Amino acid sequence: GLEGEYKVVSSSTSSMLAELNASIKKKEPVVVTLWSPHWAYGKHDLKKLEDPKGAWGKGEEVHTVAHNGFAKKAPAVADWLKKFKLTEKQLTSLENEIQDAGQGKEQDGVRSWLKKNPGLVDTLAPLPGGAGGTQEGKDAGKTVNMGYFPWDEAIASTYLWQNMLEDRGYKTTVKQLDPGPLYTGLAQGQLDVQFDSWLPTTHKDYWDRYKDDLT
């Protein structure tokens, strides 16, 4: 019954966000089909609408997925990643710092965010022997190959871990790929880990195809 008052417009993500920004500036009502986590929740005072009839289906979870052999290659890192969690507020604020830093300056955004969250690195990647112990991981010197597709939460998590791992004495490579090649690379062991598997629905086809080689 909203057809006379609201019009649904199909567009790209960037156009949707531009419309959201413009409507808020003009103080006009607007509804967007925005996923969460997303940096827009940190930039604007947004309200999530209820979905009592389940029109959008059940919610998904964002998972860290690695090649099955990664735990043998870098057991300390694998242990950190098994326990890796950020709250929606933390991830959204990290996305905002990276947005503010600008494209190509993702690590500037990460460093700015870490300064505002002291102690978080020691929580996410605890050192052997605690804070007074060595400043490197148990298997430091190993190379961790990370892949991501250009979704904001994937960019944020990937560059966060690049920063932390290099700080802990590891080498890293970071590659941007489409989901298909990324999952293929993970399954074949060309990539070690990615931080943005949306399950059980969005990436179901990839998971079903490659799950025997992934964890």
Rank of each mutant, 00 (worst) to 15 (best):
Y41A: 08
D108W: 04
P75Q: 01
A18Y: 07
V31R: 06
F84V: 05
A74M: 01
V62C: 10
T64K: 04
L124E: 04
S14M: 14
D51M: 10
K43G: 05
A76W: 03
E60T: 09
G102K: 13
S11D: 14
V31N: 01
H67G: 03
A66G: 04
K72Q: 13
P75N: 02
G119H: 04
L120F: 01
W80F: 07
T33L: 08
V110N: 07
L86R: 06
V110H: 04
P118Y: 08
T64F: 03
S10T: 11
K47W: 11
K105M: 06
P37Y: 05
N96A: 15
T123W: 04
S14W: 02
K48G: 09
I98L: 11
V77C: 00
H67E: 08
E61V: 13
V9M: 11
T13Y: 08
W39L: 11
T87V: 02
V9N: 08
W80H: 04
E106Q: 11
R111S: 12
G119F: 07
G102Q: 12
V9K: 09
W80N: 05
L20W: 09
R111G: 06
K73C: 02
E19D: 15
D51H: 07
K58Y: 00
F84L: 12
A78L: 03
T92I: 15
L46W: 10
L17R: 14
P118N: 11
